[in-house]
């Protein structure tokens, strides 16, 4: 990703939202969906184009869990910790994954391959406990199978 493309993206997004009152969060959603996170240089550009102090942008970014300030790893592993998943063994699944990957929630493996996060209820409680790896949802999981899925991705990458 070149620097110029970042600048252009932000200009388009700012133009889209500039005339709508209270649209800062929507503009940040657009930025994040384009980059997977909100890069600092994009936030700085947005501050300029939308005429909002940078501090206000970071005030919002750091308040909401959904926004990421660092690039996530190549594969995002999310362990659902909603009540239904929690009761049905999500803590055990989380424990085994942290042991296997050597990282905790919110961290990325040193090689940038995996990002691990705990999420609050993705609304699939009937299939609890659930884990998602990128877009793929794994239903009715157990610690062994969850780690197995991660191993498969690792092997796929090595081949």
């Amino acid at each position: 990703m070149t620097h110029t493309s970042v600048v252009d993206d932000v200009a388009v997004i700012a133009k889209r939202w500039n005339n709508t009152r209270g649209s800062l969060i929507m503009a940040l959603h657009d930025l994040q969906s384009r980059h997977g996170y909100v890069p600092r240089e994009s936030a700085m550009k947005l501050a300029k184009y939308m005429d909002v102090p940078l501090a206000r942008i970071y005030e919002v970014l750091t308040f909401y869990n959904y926004f990421k300030l660092k690039p996530p790893g190549k594969h995002v592993v999310s362990v659902c910790m909603g009540t239904a998943c929690y009761l049905k063994g999500a803590p055990g699944i989380y424990h085994d994954i942290t042991k296997h990957l050597g990282i905790k929630s919110g961290e990325t493996t040193p090689n940038g391959e995996f990002h691990l996060q705990i999420v609050r209820c993705i609304g699939c409680c009937g299939l609890a406990p659930v884990v998602t790896i990128n877009e793929q949802l794994l239903a009715k999981m157990n610690p062994h199978d969850a780690v197995e899925h991660i191993c498969q991705i690792k092997e796929g990458a090595e081949k």
Binding site: M81, G82, T83, A84, Y86, R120, C121, G123, C124, C125
Partner: peptide, 11 residues
């Protein structure tokens, strides 16, 4: 903004 973990009626 259905936020109760363990509920998905609104979704």
């Amino acid at each position: 903004d259905e936020g109760d973990p363990g509920a998905y009626m609104d979704r």
